[in-house]
Write a protein that binds this DNA or RNA. Structure first.
Length: 1011
RNA sequence: GGGCGAUUAACUCAGCGGCUAGAGUGCCAUCUUCACACGGUGGAAGUCACUGGUUCGAAUCCAGUAUCGCCCACCA
């Protein structure tokens, strides 16, 4: 052999070698190709907020697996990479760092400077993320990398917003947001955390102003925020609460400001069983109250906002205007007390929402926001899932998608941030006469009026002044400037991140540009949009709609549903046919891995430890339909390499450098978690996840099997092979190969990666290695039989590498290239030149002719016989150096099979098959075993302890009697025989006969031994 | 509070109406035999969470209970 083959697979070397090779050969690139069907996967775009974790590794592995598989199947397989700007998450990350390192807030640096800083952050992290993806072997078309804020995606956002605005789907409305009074900004729901806070629970009453004489003159309620009384617009009771029904429709007076408000009935807000059963309603400062207001608008008038952005009371605060809400709270309580409407107060722990960024309590705050009407858009997306245009795997996830869309809640798309797509609306206020002069009657914002389809506007009138809002289609900077000169100002807010990611499947392909293919990024440079010869966007035409979206279940609503919706709206077609939902990764305690919990694990560390293929193979074996994946984490002691299991306290963040103590060598060391950076030069207990040894060991096994094959290919010469050249083990492994190919192909088609992985492992390890390789050893040593054996071996290895390539790309490519040097021409029955690389080799097919299930069954019997002999060896503790003799009494058919593999007994069981046939006589003394239709004898003169053998046989007989009893019971059950399917009954009868045969031979042996 | 899922060997998981309930790891014994100790061979190990029901037959289907996880809603 030209190159030495090491005994252990070196993953790092293969990874460093083959990824650049594939990339330089353009193997990952996908371009419109009418000769091939497309297969398209859009990556669930990772946020540029930080490094990838295990969840991404799982997600990426599956997509790469599918892409490589489809590519081999002859599809033009595109896996589209990219990243998400992730508005809030990224901006707050950068702001936090700026505050910590320089003490600056965003208001200190201003909008442009902050955005510029975030771009720099994005560039750094995007690079990190993309390189992490490459280390898991991701065969994305790297020329097509997109970012949600790049020009291509921005155009799609502008176009979509404009189209929706023109179609009347976008409107302005009020919405309660979480207001951070310290940073004076709105905070997203997921940036809010709850904390138990000491507070009070007051009970007050409001006097009823129009009560009949015989009714109570006041109504009591409780609150934890008395100052909001200033903004009350109603009090609310349950419609069937008999204590209050007579008061519904009457009015009360708020004592502290004298305002008179109605008593309304609302079953959703009021709960008869809680407190007094009566609630005050402050729609501007409480989400539930706001909901009540929307249901009872006409009864209670507009919500009243009592707060300034800094948390002080505004003009609605009356005498307390300008005071902080918490100070005003005490004052309001005192005033109520003075006026005699205070009833009681108790101490209470109150769960209070806090801003994650400023750590101060947030206030619910009513503000103006932009919305998308979901009605028709959502219905279209619902229809697509109902009629099967979009299919979920596993199917049950369709439900979450449907029930969420079914609510058809309008989508709030504005965010009070600076990092993102700024809302493309310019507005200006006009006094009435001014407006009429500027926009004479008939000249409204009807685009047809000017024949302009790139421009749309709306006018609102609040009774005093007009507000004109204008939206432009993309690409008219001059017009924008013109309107800016005329005093129009662009919205400060940006769009919800999901607005741009919802467009991902078509935006990345260049939509809305229908004339040019989207630009490519080559060698770090973005080319301008190349004109396509047909003046069409062929990339979009060819690759849309996509094939499958691979993601985890938590963004089915936020992302998957919205992609379907915008795809239908913009493209008139669904974005992907299948949605594959894979498990989530949990730590050893069943907690999902996340940055905040500090239990995240960097896949790169695992790749370094177990190899990329080992990581991929293991992770694919997790991806089934039911369970989430639990990964117990450990730390490897740097002194003695013992693995210390992770315990919850290892994850708690404590100041200082915590150490971990090894229970084995008793030494302490620092350890690596996302919460700590170990000191330079210190020995570090690194993170290990022992479950990944599964894949690493498998890689090594494959490596050595191939190594064995290649070491035995001396003198290999390709040639056609005749049926008569095939030994029974050849036919068997070819049949198994055909079966496994079929299984894996079917399983991947329905995204059952775990089952596919198992099937492959079992085949490679338990069949190819344990049996086939062992069985051909004698032939490889025989010059006459060697050539045919080599040809079959090479073909089987070739096919196996192709089957494994989507799962373990690096090792298969490494082996493929080595095999190519030794056996460049191969295949059965007629050899052909091997493909240049396994990545571009075709997926195995056409193996069906080798399939022979009867043979597989016969072979299984031989295996059982061998195992039984080994078993005897084990029982009597026979030295591996000693060859034992075996004789078998069996039917002529089995005799023929056994004769074929006679020579195998030496290597498989260190035994020689001395006599086989119907006439075989049992030697004495000997060990016995009965296999249904064959009695086997191992003469062991001097080795067998007679009594021990009797005991062994008695034990065996007992076991069989137990089974027989079970079967008998079944057969004696009349209704079983009557009602169970005939073949089931027949099967039980057959097993019964076999068991009885076995038992009688054992009983005979026992009699003889005893006698 | 609503929805979804899980509970099977010491651990991590398959099996989802009919074989003696399987695998990997770990454990025990044994083997450094010319592919592999990241290995070979053999072995021990399970009231299939619990309680009922349907069925000739239930780990598997149904109902309830308990525990865990996730999503959504909510907590005057």
């Amino acid at each position: 052999m030209t190159t030495e083959i090491p005994k252990q697979y070196d993953p790092a070397a293969a990874e460093a070698r083959w990824f650049p090779y594939w990339e330089s050969q353009g193997c990952f690139n996908a371009d419109p190709n009418p000769a091939k069907p497309p297969h398209v996967i859009m990556i669930p775009l990772p946020n540029v907020t930080g490094a990838l974790h295990m969840g991404h590794a799982l997600n990426g592995t599956l997509q790469d697996l599918l892409t490589r598989w489809r590519r081999m199947q002859g599809y033009e397989a595109l896996w589209m990479p990219g990243t998400d700007h992730a508005g809030i998450a990224t901006q707050s990350m950068v702001e936090k760092r700026m505050k910590e390192e320089e003490g600056l807030t965003r208001n200190d640096v201003g909008r442009d400077a902050l955005v510029e800083r975030i771009w720099k952050w994005k560039d750094a992290y995007e690079q990190r993320i993309l390189s992490q993806l490459k280390s898991i072997g991701a065969s994305c078309d790297w020329r097509r990398v997109r970012f949600t804020l790049d020009d291509v995606c921005s155009k799609a956002v502008r176009q979509t917003f404009f189209k929706m605005f023109k179609d009347g789907l976008i409107y302005r409305g009020k919405r309660l947001v979480n207001w951070d009074t310290y940073l004076q900004t709105a905070v997203a729901d997921d940036e809010v955390y709850e904390e138990e806070t000491d507070g009070h629970f007051w009970t007050f009453n409001y006097p009823v102003v129009d009560a009949s004489a015989d009714a109570p003159q006041s109504i009591s309620f409780s609150t934890t925020r008395p100052e909001t009384m200033l903004g009350d617009t109603a009090v609310c009771v349950h419609p069937t609460d008999e204590r209050y029904t007579h008061l519904i429709g009457k009015h009360v007076r708020i004592p502290v400001n004298g305002r008179v408000i109605p008593i309304v009935a609302d079953a959703l807000l009021a709960d008869k069983t809680l407190g007094t059963g009566c609630v005050k309603v402050t729609p501007a400062h409480d989400p539930n109250d706001y909901g009540c207001w929307t249901r009872n608008k006409e009864k209670m008038g507009e919500p009243i906002n009592i707060l300034n952005p800094d948390g002080t009371l505004n003009e609605n605060g009356g005498p307390w205007q300008g005071q902080d809400r918490l100070i005003a709270r005490e004052a309001v309580v005192a005033e109520m007390q003075r006026l005699g409407h205070f009833e009681k107060v108790e101490d209470r722990k109150i769960p209070l929402k806090h801003s994650d960024r400023s750590k101060t309590p947030v206030e619910p705050y009513l503000s103006e926001q932009w919305f998308v009407k979901m009605d028709t858009l959502a219905q279209a997306a619902i229809d697509a899932a109902n009629d099967g245009r979009v299919t979920f795997y596993p199917e049950r996830y369709r439900q979450s998608y449907l029930s969420w869309l079914g609510e058809k809640r309008d989508w709030c798309i504005s965010r009070q941030l600076w990092w993102g797509h700024r809302i493309p609306i310019w507005s200006r206020e006009y006094a009435k006469d001014e407006f009429e002069k500027a926009f004479p009657e008939g000249y409204r914002f009807n685009p047809d009026h000017e024949g302009a389809s790139w421009f749309h506007g709306s006018v609102s009138f609040d009774g005093a002044k007009y507000t004109v809002r204008i939206c432009f289609d993309d690409g008219h900077p001059d017009v924008e400037r013109y309107y800016e000169q005329a005093g129009f100002v662009q919205e400060e807010d940006v769009l919800d991140t999901w607005f741009s990611s919802a467009l991902w499947p078509h935006a990345t392909l260049g939509w809305p540009d229908r004339q040019h293919n989207p630009p490519l990024r080559v060698a770090g440079q973005t080319t301008s949009a190349p004109a396509s010869p047909s003046s069409k966007n062929e990339v979009l035409d060819y690759f849309y709609p996509g094939s499958v979206l691979v993601t985890s279940r938590d963004i089915i609503t936020l992302w998957v549903a919205r992609m379907v919706l915008t795809g239908l709206y913009n493209m008139g077609d669904i974005p992907f046919k299948h949605v594959c939902i894979h498990p989530k990764i949990q730590d050893g305690f069943g907690q999902t891995m996340s940055k905040t919990k500090g239990n995240g694990v960097d896949p790169i560390e695992l790749i370094e430890k177990y190899g990329c293929d080992g990581m991929r193979f293991t992770i694919a074996s997790f991806a089934g339909e039911t369970q989430d994946v639990r990964l117990p984490v450990g730390y490897e002691c740097p002194h003695c390499q013992a693995v210390i299991p992770q315990e919850p306290h290892h994850l708690k963040f404590k100041p200082g450098k915590p150490k971990i103590k090894c229970p084995k060598c008793k030494k302490e060391s620092q350890y690596a978690t996302p919460n700590y950076v170990p000191d330079e030069g210190e020995p570090v207990a690194r993170i290990v996840i022992e479950r990944f040894e599964y894949g690493r060991n498998f890689s090594n096994k494959l490596w050595n099997a191939a190594r064995f094959a290649m070491l035995n290919l001396e003198g290999y010469a390709p040639a056609p092979i005749a049926d008569s050249d095939l030994a029974i083990e050849d036919r068997w492994i070819l049949s198994r190969l055909a079966t496994v190919t079929d299984e894996v192909t079917t399983l991947l088609g329905v995204y059952k990666f775990d089952a596919a992985t198992r099937s492959l492992r079992d085949y490679v390890w338990n069949e190819f290695c344990d049996w086939y390789l062992e069985m051909i050893k004698p032939r490889l040593r025989d010059e006459g039989l060697k050539p045919a054996a080599q040809r079959v071996l090479v073909m089987v290895l070739d096919t196996t590498l192709r089957l494994l390539h989507p799962f373990t790309p690096f090792i298969t490519e490494e082996l493929w290239q080595r095999l190519k040097e030794i056996a460049p021409v191969r295949g059965l029955p007629n050899p052909e030149a091997a493909h240049d690389a396994v990545i571009t080799a075709p997926w195995p097919s056409g193996l069906e002719t080798w399939r022979d299930s009867a043979l597989e069954l016969r072979f299984q019997r031989l295996q059982e016989l061998i195992v039984a002999v080994r078993n005897v060896r084990g029982t009597y503790n026979i030295s591996p150096a000693v060859t034992v003799a075996v004789s078998v009494k069996c039917s002529p058919e089995i005799t023929a099979d056994l004769k074929q593999v006679q020579v195998q007994f030496e290597s498989l069981a260190k035994a020689s098959l001395t006599e086989v046939g119907p006439q075989t006589v049992r030697p004495t003394p000997c060990a016995n075993f009965a296999l249904g239709d064959a009695d086997c004898y191992v003469p062991l003169a001097g080795l067998v302890d007679l009594q021990a053998e009797v005991d062994r046989q008695k034990k065996e007989a007992e076991k069989i009697r137990g089974f027989i009893a079970g079967h008998e019971k079944k057969l004696n059950n009349a209704s079983f025989v009557e009602r169970a399917p005939a073949e089931v009954v027949a099967e039980v009868r057959e097993t019964m006969t076999n068991l009885q045969k076995q038992l009688s031979s054992i009983e005979e042996v026992i009699r003889e031994l005893a006698g």
